[in-house]
């Protein structure tokens, strides 16, 4: 599978998620390779470790305001820090899990690890280069970062 095709699998996961869960389409910008420096992280970041046929990490990072509005769109009334952590983890889990449609059942995903704060919490596997998929939803900006060997 080409790198473009692999990125396309994740973009499909992103678009499907926003359309179904918050009934408002997201737009994905042009994916790019993060060369020389780590991609910026936002307020909440959830990381999924990938193992099996492929190894690496997938993480989703988003601002608090975006996650709060998403919870509202889901009729959720609890906007606590714990629920925002929960949501960002669930989103990352869904993006990575849905990618098995393209990668197959040997694309194993971990439970999410959630980090709060904008300090870069991510250790990238050696020999890999992160691909950043920019996500625009309403007025908010988030990122999905895919780093697979």
């Amino acid at each position: 599978m080409t790198q473009e095709a692999e990125v396309g699998i994740f973009i499909d996961s992103v678009l499907g998620y926003f359309n179904v869960t918050v009934q408002h389409m997201a737009q994905c910008g042009t994916p790019y390779l993060a060369i020389g420096r780590s991609p910026e992280v936002s307020d909440y970041t959830a990381m999924i470790k990938i193992s099996g046929k492929r190894e690496g990490i997938v993480y989703f990072t988003a601002p608090r305001s975006m996650l709060s509005v998403m919870l509202m769109r889901m009729q959720e009334t609890d906007m606590s820090h714990e629920n925002l952590c929960d949501l960002v983890g669930e989103i990352a889990n869904t993006f990575a899990g849905n990618a098995r449609r393209g990668f197959g059942h040997q694309f194993n995903i971990s439970v999410p690890t959630v980090v709060y704060g904008s300090k870069d919490p991510v250790e990238y596997p050696a020999g890999t280069r992160p691909i950043v998929i920019p996500i625009d939803w309403r007025a908010y900006k988030a990122r999905l970062v895919v780093c697979l060997n």
């Binding site: 899990g97 449609r101 197959g104």
Partner: peptide, 27 residues
């Protein structure tokens, strides 16, 4: 109800005794 969206995951769950499979995200 799982985000694991490949067919073999659904078949595996049904073989273990589940009665249905719904993929996340869902309406």
């Amino acid at each position: 109800i799982s985000a694991l969206a490949d067919k073999s995951t659904a078949i595996d769950a049904l073989e273990r005794g589940a009665s249905g499979f719904l993929c996340k995200p869902f309406t």
